[in-house]
Amino acid sequence: MRDDRPFGGVDPPAAVFFYSRDRTAEHPERHLVDYAGILQADAYSGYNRLYAPERSPGAITEAACWSHGRRKFFVLAVVAANARERARGKTSAIAPLALEAVKRIDVIFDAEREINGLPADKRLAFRRARVAPLVFVLEEWMRAERARLSRHSDVAKAMDYMLKRWSAFARFLDDGRICLTNNAAERELRGVALGRKSWLIAGSDRGDERAAVMYTLIATARLNGVDPQAWLADVLARINDHKITDLAALLPWRWAAERESRKLAA
């Protein structure tokens, strides 16, 4: 998925969903076979070969997601299990280092909110001046504290998740197009995860692939502020008589612009 809303991108935002029957590496490799750009995601090992320098048509640039890194500390600082225990009248200790890590990472998140919606070059300039020092101090603190911890410590494991991938976590400091997190993609997947609790089955792989196409259309319309139902109803009613060489005119952002111009003309 690509979502340009967090910064002032030139192109309209869009979403693309792909179906995979399992989580093996062959699927993302097939989906991105012709892609050579930035991939912001968690540390799923199925992406590893995409980052290989010898990959054709070129290595994909890895950008780590700070929400995934923060979450590991947050779980230790305010553990869900502790919440359940407190509900039963019990109390549990909060990991002080994990809480401190969350606080330091939240300062970076707060700074990033100031540049939401700005063009990539302005985001980059702001990051170099204001965010990079915060990231540098966080890394120094984390490496110093990690050296004092046992490798079996849960906090150490949370730190290792970030420190072992630090170049990928820090990559947003050198490219204004990269977001701090991949939350935009995660939000669009939430509907799929929630829907699984209500739906039975798609019936076949082909059914799942068609569902992915529908998710692509609906999510892209929503990203562009277009009512998916109104857009699809209008497009399906007109597409049979529309020029096959100009299907791009029916894309949500162009459809919305045409509809607005018709209103103004009337």
Rank of each mutant, 00 (worst) to 15 (best):
R88G: 07
A129I: 01
S56T: 15
P133H: 09
R123M: 07
A63Q: 12
K103N: 11
R146T: 09
A144Y: 00
A80D: 14
F73Q: 07
A120S: 15
L124I: 04
W166Y: 05
I115E: 03
L138N: 10
A158H: 02
G89Q: 02
S67Y: 04
R128P: 04
D160T: 12
A77Y: 05
N116D: 09
D160Y: 06
R165Q: 14
L97M: 02
R86G: 03
V135C: 08
A81R: 14
L124F: 00
H152W: 02
R130D: 12
H152M: 07
E145H: 10
V78Q: 15
A101P: 05
V78N: 14
I105E: 12
L97V: 00
V79Y: 01
K157P: 04
L99P: 01
G89R: 07
A98C: 04
A120N: 11
I108T: 09
M142L: 11
L97T: 01
R127H: 01
K164C: 13
G58C: 08
E85L: 14
A144P: 06
R86Y: 00
A158Q: 08
E100Y: 00
E145F: 02
V131S: 10
R123W: 02
F126E: 07
M142R: 01
W141M: 06
A129N: 02
E112L: 06
A63N: 14
A95M: 06
V135Y: 04
R84W: 00
A83K: 11
F73N: 05
S92D: 06
F73G: 06
F136M: 08
A64Q: 12
G89M: 01
H152C: 04
L99Q: 12
K157S: 08
K164W: 05
A156K: 10
R113I: 01
F126V: 04
A93S: 12
G117V: 05
A98T: 04
D121M: 03
V137H: 03
I115S: 04
K122S: 04
R113A: 14
G58M: 10
A101H: 03
Y161Q: 14
R151S: 12
